[in-house]
């Protein structure tokens, strides 16, 4: 008995001893590489492509942060995390930043001691069903078997939705998106529920995508964003403003292609600050003067990243919707860069 208690304490404390409490920025700079927690595989958001290179909407934000901090968008080590392991990986210092379509919630922010520094995708939870099931509304799903990823907010929303509508369901809990798709396609569940963006991504990878529909009900708010450890404000600021820089770049029409030209010719004071030409903005956060310029140059502005990975020209085909800039009726709004 003594032995087990001892080994338990040993295991518990090695987990904790791994936590890094030094400034994350210094660690990343010393390492010369950013460690970014991403999804184990969600096409369009974070997944390795055929040649093993990580691609996606979340992945490009990782690359932008890496470009800003260490100067090279390729200097990123991607650590795949499941719904269950992601926050532990972040809290223990295994990853520097978690950009893994994770929903910002009160308890994650306050109790799990995470800081969600931005919202890079405004999402909501939906249901994917086979067309021949003959269902046109989520409220008709009484008695259905539902595939649900464990350790997620969607798990709790699902229970709330069915309870509120006074209908019942049988859950089939799965670990990640690929297992959920396998179970759903094998008919082990009638419907698969997760963020609507994730469903669109899942449908895009299915061989018979046209035989599946996403039901019209969006049953929750899922603001997805990058998370960092609570208490390291400088690092949180860097991730937040890297994201804001990408938004401002879209607002000002700065793209991957024209960034050098804009930098050399612009007279707009905000663009000049963003490009590191005046105001000494980068060094305030412990970065180089042109850090945010490099971030934009890495994968383009927010709109370019969106279109390249999940936009209407891709198989996933998501509309900008809530994720359009505030000037175009969306919610993406960056604070002034001054």
């Amino acid at each position: 008995m003594k032995k087990s208690a001892f080994l338990g304490a040993l295991a518990a404390s090695t987990v904790l001893a791994g936590a890094a409490f030094a400034a994350t920025l210094d660690d990343v700079k010393a390492r010369g590489e950013l460690i970014c927690g991403v999804n184990v595989g969600l096409t369009g958001f974070g997944a390795p492509d055929a040649s093993g290179e990580w691609k996606g909407f979340d992945v490009d934000l990782c690359r932008a942060v890496a470009a800003a901090v260490v100067g090279d968008p390729q200097k990123v080590k991607f650590v795949p995390t499941t719904g269950e392991t992601r926050f532990t990986a972040l809290a223990s210092g295994e990853v520097d930043v978690l950009i893994r379509n994770s929903t910002m919630t009160y308890s994650r922010d306050v109790d799990l001691k995470l800081d969600f520094v931005a919202i890079n995708y405004y999402d909501g939870q939906g249901f994917l069903v086979k067309k021949d099931l003959g269902v046109s509304s989520a409220k008709e799903l009484d008695g259905a078997t539902v595939c649900i990823q464990t350790g997620t907010t969607t798990e709790l929303n699902l229970a709330d939705f069915f309870k509120f509508n006074n209908i019942s369901y049988t859950p089939v809990t799965v670990q990640d998106d690929s297992e959920a798709q396998r179970q759903y396609l094998a008919g082990a569940c009638d419907t698969y529920t997760t963020d609507a963006s994730g469903l669109a991504a899942a449908r895009a990878t299915m061989a018979d995508g046209e035989n599946h529909i996403i039901l019209p009900e969006i049953i929750s708010k899922e603001p997805l964003g990058p998370a960092v450890r609570h208490g390291d404000n400088q690092w949180g600021d860097i991730v937040r403003w890297t994201f804001n820089a990408l938004l401002i770049a879209e607002e000002k029409g700065i793209t991957k292609a024209n960034i050098e030209e804009v930098a050399s010719s612009t007279t707009d004071p905000e663009i000049r600050r963003l490009m590191g030409l005046e105001g000494d903005m980068g060094p305030m956060a412990g970065l180089d003067a042109d850090a945010f310029k490099r971030a934009i140059a890495a994968g383009g502005n927010y709109g370019e990243i969106f279109e390249a990975n999940i936009g209407s020209s891709t198989p996933i085909g998501l509309a900008r919707g809530l994720n359009a800039l505030w000037t175009q009726g969306g919610l993406q709004y960056a604070a002034p860069f001054r």
């Binding site: 338990g8 295991a11 518990a12 987990v15 904790l16 719904g83 269950e84 926050f87 532990t88 308890s107 994650r108 109790d111 799990l112 464990t150 350790g151 798990e155 709790l156 809990t173």
Partner: peptide, 19 residues
Amino acid sequence: GTLGGITLNQTGRELECML
């Protein structure tokens, strides 16, 4: 699956759940 899985995840109390 319950205590060490979903409960641990939803509450974030790793040490308590594991012990």
